[in-house]
Design a protein around this nucleic acid. Structure first.
Lengths: 109, 109
DNA sequence: CAGGATCCGTACTGATACTG
DNA sequence: CAGTATCAGTACGGATCCTG
């Protein structure tokens, strides 16, 4: 399943580290976060920046990040529609995590 | 699939952050790492420490961490068998990542 | 433009039973 | 004790078509 109807079970999370992993553990989430660290982006910009992602998947990952309070979604009610995504204050605090992961991944991985 | 015969496809990884996520992104991996930061553990100890994990899943996650060079598996050829898991030097360098994730998860998540 | 709807293959993980 | 084999459910993510 993957249509939005799937139950959000997600098991219990006790450890804070687990919680963080659940927040950023998606296929594209760290990339999305990385791009948003560079500033506000539109949906189309993200689609192009993350070469290979489908609109459905990108939408879903963005919605999940939004649900975690990590990013903000701003809709401009116009035709054609325009939607901007940006990091919230909480999301910006993920930068140290991303940095630490970047450092490790560069040396190893 | 989940028997060890599954192909390790895993898509391409360009960004170092992605690489790190792939290494520690499993359901139990950060917990395993966290426990191993406290020192060498046997299989049974990990099974009990990670309440709820099945032997099959734990084995698989340990093997993946081993394949990444993050942990070391030491087998004592005896009856009954004894296997010890410990962090490698590379694995220990993941500590800053775990710490950053812990800090964020504590405040949010 | 930014998605929603639908269909689908694959990966991840658990449960259970069995073994050297 | 430390797994392995098998069965099975669920989640994840892609492809394609459609729409306000």
């Amino acid at each position: 399943m993957a249509t939005g109807k799937e139950k959000a079970v997600k098991k219990e999370v006790s450890c804070p580290v687990e919680a963080t992993l659940r927040a950023i553990g998606g296929r594209w989430k760290v990339l999305i976060l990385h791009h948003l660290l560079g500033g506000t982006k539109r949906f189309g910009e993200l689609t192009r920046a993350l070469k290979g992602v489908s609109a459905r998947t990108l939408t879903k990952q963005l919605r999940e990040l939004e649900a975690c309070g990590v990013i903000h979604r701003k809709v401009y009610p116009q035709i054609p529609p325009m939607v901007e995504y940006s990091l919230t204050a909480v999301g910006k605090q993920l930068e140290p995590v991303l940095m630490a992961m970047h450092d490790w991944g560069e040396k190893h991985g």
